[in-house]
Simulated assay, not measured.
Amino acid sequence: MTVKKISSPSMPSCAGRALRSSLLACALAAAAPAFAAAVDKAEIDRPGGSDNRVVGRYQGSVLYLYGDTALGKVNILSAKGGKPVLLSVEGKVANRMYVAPKGASPLEVYRNYRDALTKAGFEPIYACELTACDKDGTQPMMSDRPREAVWVKSSAQADSLFNSGNQPDFSYYSGRRSGPDGITYVSIGIAGGGSFDGRVRQFIQVAEPSTTQLGKVKVDAKAIEAGLKRDGKMALYGVNFDTNKALLRDDSAAQLTEMAAVLKAAPALKVFIVGHTDNQGEFGANTTLSQKRAEAVVAALSGKYGIAPTRLIARGVANLAPVSANDNEDGRAKNRRVEMVVR
């Protein structure tokens, strides 16, 4: 990628300063407006940004804007009856806006992306080129997508990328690729004309498989007590173990404290501590693992928190009692849990 050199502006206000650090700070402050102007003109990449690992850039393009979300939902276009419809997908979302080099045509840029995605194993969900997109009314359906995206900085250029759906030379592609962790989705909108001296603008969204990391919120004693009275049991996701291990992690302490508080407040209460796993791996191994995890919780409650061992019975049931489907990682995360069950 060719980056135009930014000439150093004059810095009269720095004259006479003795300290090297002061001179450096002054130089950076004076250069900032020119640097920002270069970004706004898409002459250099947006500071701090980089290409997404799934989809890179058209050769010679400049990264104008970027934004990432650990877990979010985005709307891409799918097909129903041959026509575009909105499809909501969830995952780790990467938003990128690029500006192509001068001389690149919108159709050339679009077909390069589509060819690269095909070679990378993506199958199209919906795709159209130029007049076919006009006929399907595709671009108006994309006009809000950049405005809904998460960016590191607000930008009128990004918000109006597809304007009201009337930008010239518009093409669109959405595709999916299955992998061991789930489905990755890609959505690409290409438009010519408009800002940046008519250079081709590229809006790319990638949604990779991601899950909610459970166990970051403890269930307090009042909620545990209410759950036990209401349902006779309470699922606790704040009791944490590393994968395939039965050693309690340090971040389980807060949840164990609340469990102990419930038991201390009701001296007559006796409970099963039940370990659950997802369906990954052999059932026998999961049964053993879930039993050892339940025993680790009992040992902690009795040894560290002073709960009489006779009030606690550990049981491991592997994946015999799921609370969600095991065919996706979010469901499996919900199934990996420890429960208190009234005896």
Rank of each mutant, 00 (worst) to 15 (best):
L269C: 05
N279T: 08
K264G: 01
K245Y: 05
L263N: 12
G281K: 04
A266Y: 05
R249V: 02
A235Q: 11
V274Y: 00
L248C: 03
V239K: 02
V271P: 07
V239R: 04
T257C: 03
G275R: 05
A235F: 08
Y237N: 07
V271G: 04
E258L: 04
G281N: 10
G275D: 06
D242S: 13
A261Q: 12
F241I: 01
K245D: 13
L269F: 05
N244Y: 11
A266V: 13
L236S: 02
E258V: 01
L248R: 15
N244C: 08
A265P: 15
K245G: 11
A260V: 07
A266I: 14
A254G: 00
F272Q: 13
Y237V: 03
T257H: 14
V271Q: 14
M259C: 09
K245P: 02
K264L: 14
N244G: 07
A265R: 07
K264I: 01
A235R: 07
A261M: 08
D250W: 04
A246C: 02
V274H: 05
E258I: 00
R249L: 14
I273S: 09
G238W: 04
A260K: 09
A254W: 09
D278C: 14
D251G: 13
F241L: 02
E258P: 00
D250Q: 15
K264H: 14
A254L: 01
H276I: 00
A253T: 07
V262I: 13
V271I: 02
D242E: 13
N240S: 13
D278A: 10
A266Q: 12
I273N: 12
S252W: 08
A253K: 10
A265D: 09
L247N: 14
L269M: 15
A261D: 15
S252A: 08
T277P: 01
R249M: 14
A254V: 00
T243Y: 12
H276K: 12
A265I: 04
K270G: 04
I273M: 14
L236V: 00
T243G: 08
T257M: 10
T277K: 15
H276A: 01
E258D: 03
A253W: 00
